[in-house]
Amino acid sequence: MTVESYGFDTLAIHAGQEPDPRTGAVVPPIYQTSTYAQDAVGAPRLGYEYSRSGNPTRDSLQECLAAIENGRRGLAFASGLAAEDTLLRTVCRPGDHVVIPNDAYGGTFRLFSKVAERWGLDWTAVPLDDIDAVRAAFRPGHTRLIWSETPTNPLLNVNDIALLAGLAHEYDAMLAVDNTFASPYLQQPLAFGADVVIHSTTKYLGGHSDVVGGALVTADAGLGEELAFHQNAMGAVNGPFDAWLTLRGIKTLGVRMDRHCDNAERIVAYLSEHPAVAQVLYPGLETHPGHEVAAKQMSRFGGMVSFRTAGGPEQAVAVCNRAKLFVLAESLGGVESLIEHPGQMTHLSAAGSALEVPADLVRLSVGIETVDDLLADLEQALG
Rank of each mutant, 00 (worst) to 15 (best):
L186E: 11
A182S: 15
L88A: 15
G95I: 09
V99S: 00
T152R: 14
L167C: 09
I146D: 07
L75A: 05
N102V: 01
S183D: 08
L128G: 01
V99I: 15
K114L: 13
C92D: 01
L145V: 00
V177T: 06
W119S: 01
P189E: 09
N159L: 05
L156H: 14
M174D: 00
Y171P: 03
D122K: 11
A173D: 02
R118E: 09
D130M: 10
Y171D: 12
F181H: 07
L128D: 01
D122M: 08
A176V: 13
D132W: 03
G106S: 01
I100K: 07
A83V: 01
F138R: 11
G80C: 03
V91L: 14
R139C: 08
G107D: 12
A182L: 10
P101V: 06
P154M: 12
A83R: 03
N159F: 13
V91R: 02
D130A: 07
L164M: 12
L167Y: 07
F138L: 11
G120A: 07
D85H: 04
D178Q: 05
P154V: 06
E149L: 14
V126C: 06
L186V: 05
I161K: 14
A82N: 13
R73N: 04
T90W: 00
E117Q: 12
D130R: 14
H169T: 10
P154N: 13
T108W: 08
S183K: 03
G141E: 10
R135L: 10
D132F: 11
A76P: 04
T152L: 00
I161W: 11
L81P: 00
A76I: 05
D132K: 13
S148V: 15
N153P: 00
L175Q: 09
W119C: 00
S148M: 13
A168S: 11
L111I: 07
T124P: 02
F77K: 09
D132I: 05
V158K: 12
G95N: 10
V91W: 05
G120Q: 11
L75N: 03
R144K: 14
W147A: 05
N179Q: 01
V158M: 13
E149G: 01
R73I: 14
L163I: 03
T152F: 07
G95S: 10
A137E: 02
V99M: 04
P189M: 06
P127W: 07
R72F: 01
D103C: 10
H142P: 01
V99H: 02
L156A: 12
L121S: 03
Q187H: 14
V126G: 03
A82S: 14
L155D: 13
A162R: 15
G166Q: 13
G74F: 06
V134W: 05
I161S: 12
W147V: 08
I161C: 13
S183W: 07
P151S: 11
A168D: 02
A78P: 03
W147Q: 05
E170S: 04
Y171N: 15
T152V: 00
F181E: 06
A76W: 09
G106R: 01
G71P: 03
